[in-house]
Design a protein around this nucleic acid. Sequence first.
DNA 1: CTCTTCCAGCTTTTT
DNA 2: GCTGGAAGAG
Length: 754
Amino acid sequence: MDFINELNSSQQAAVLNTEGPSLVIAGAGSGKTRVLTYRIAQLLNQGVPPYKILALTFTNKAASEMRKRIAELVGTEIASNIWMGTFHSIFSKILRFEAERLGYSSSFTIYDTMDSRNLIKAIVKELKLDDKVYKANIILGRISMAKNNLIVAQSYAQSARIISEDSSSKRPLLGDIYRIYQERCKQSDTMDFDDLLLQTNILFRDHADILDKYQQKFSHVLVDEYQDTNYSQYLIVKKLSELHHNICVVGDDAQSIYSFRGARIENILNFKNDYPNYNIYKLEQNYRSTTTIVDAANSIISKNKEQIPKRVFSENEEGEKIKVLRALSDKEEGFQVSNEIYRLANYEQQDYSDFAILYRTNAQSRIMEESLRKRNIPYKIYGGQSFYQRKEVKDLLAYFRLTVNQNDEEALKRIINYPKRGIGSSTMEKVREIAIQHQISMWIVLCNLDKIPPFINAGTISKLQKFGLMIEKLKDQSENENAYDMAMMIARSSGIIDDLSNDDTPEGVSRRENIQELLNGIKDFSETAYKDGANDKLSAFLEGVALLTDQDGEKELDQNKVTLMTIHASKGLEFANVFITGLEEGLFPGQQSAASTTALEEERRLFYVALTRAEKRAYMSFATSRYQNGQITNPRPSRFITDIDPEFLDGCHILRDEPSTFKLRSTVSSGFKKPNITLNTPSVNIPDIDRSKLKPIDSSQLVPEMVIFHPTFGVGQVTNIEGFGMQRKAKVLFKEGGSRTLLLKFAKLFTQQD
DNA sequence: CTCTTCCAGCTTTTT
DNA sequence: GCTGGAAGAG
């Protein structure tokens, strides 16, 4: 094991002490992945069989990266036998083995977030509830949080705290929705993402023999990014390692940035209580960044209260100070950033791939993009819609899902009328009604249309039957044909290929390319599986693909392009030069975070993540005026800039100028711009209009404070006008119905005749 | 049943 | 400023 000598002493300790509970605190840039991979290699060297090692990550990317690096140390064959993957993929594998115990079949399909949301919308509609109150996103969020905390529908309905929360938010029936949602998932033989963890917990809780089997099986459990685990994940890991106690968690509490999706920083903070005889290893030497960057990052993160004590340091050169850039507007911010990139690229021979522009929200990317394009700087935006989220890809995948699992209701609803077969929503509502009456899935209804009283006219019935027969036939063939042949057959016989080939717009061409890419991927899968003697059927492909997101990032990364991404997406990456943009109060830290200390601490950790991405140079930029949601705002510079010790900053004098500049600016702007009124309650002060004397008014004549009449919303007063031409909008406070923004291109407005 | 029109909403994101 | 969904028209 020569590689041990490449490690520093704390890294060595973390790699070599493989027995008992271990907590590895891995500061930013401290060689975390290296320690984790070497530790696994060390276990293998000690004679632990690869199939007894369970290594859990959050992303597929992290898992495949680690597998690759372990393969370099111990060979592909051994590396491929380690149980290494995301929480979701590993436990969906186990759930498929044990599905019958829970009342699912081993070929259950997986609902993505969109499927879950659509199902909730359908349930809200069926219950005839107001979808303005029962908003799908809120309900989904509540259900997801409940599941992540192991609160099943039954306990949800019994919890006093939850009942009072839901009744005070005027959603007393949320528990019923949760129960029906879960029943429907079960009936459809589907699990959502949270189920993969929740059902694993239920499996281990209710079936001691199964828990015992996996406790025996996994002699060593390792968890990456432990600070990002939620309660459900925490408990699975805890139970699995109860027998051998060989649990090793790696993470950095200072980089916990996912509480909004259920992550609990307490899991890592309280590790010492869960495993009192634990060993702690602190990887504190940062090999990535200059001392300036590391020290500046320390100076800001030290303001957080809840932390595991550590002292991250760097032995690299001091490097340049962090440059602060002030811009007059969001556009100018983009201009300054791209100018600086242009300068460094052309006069200091830096590659474009050495730059990253980071931002808090995706909405900020557009303006950055525009300024880079004007300067002819090549760039690549990460994030946004991933390949598997695209409509055409999801459509084809829905056919695959239905072929494998006919009860998959969301897949059925998605494709029964795509391509168009004349089966509309009213027909589907009838089918759903029958399904509810008989407590059966919609697919069973489709299979028994002949026995059903004639609610539906004969023509539509035959359309439904034709669709059912097509799926039935595909199902039969899928048991013999390989995934690729099946996929081609489905793409053709469903009519998807015909439908897309009629579209020669750029979007249509891109859709065809995406379908082709998916088909290529399946071909690859089939061939590899056949070569390896593995299952090459469509169902096997689907099991793997349901939990995939972007994997095609790698080919793009080696191109010479500037990287644009959210700070969240940048976690784990590094760049020579990093621009942290939009450092303004209300944006970063966000408006929402200002109220609570914990939220603010998380924003601060997010800032810490952003800053520690930089190897050589870091920039922090802010604008004194910015469009947010189509509204112009005059934000103040972020506290994150002012909180950093000024000795690390270059150009912080512009901050000292800021208060007066800001005051001046806001006085000037208030001279021509009325403050935005966002009251939801009608104001009594709006004068009435004599509705018998109305005359139409052209949008160009509209001015703030004018009282107008809208055919739908009635009398209101203009509070704000903005935009030009087609985009011109007016914000109007109506006597009844609160404030609304009207696009003047469409709105027909009237005013009183003089 | 399908297409157009008209808004409302809007952190972060993996699986 | 863009997108997705709902409502209303064809």
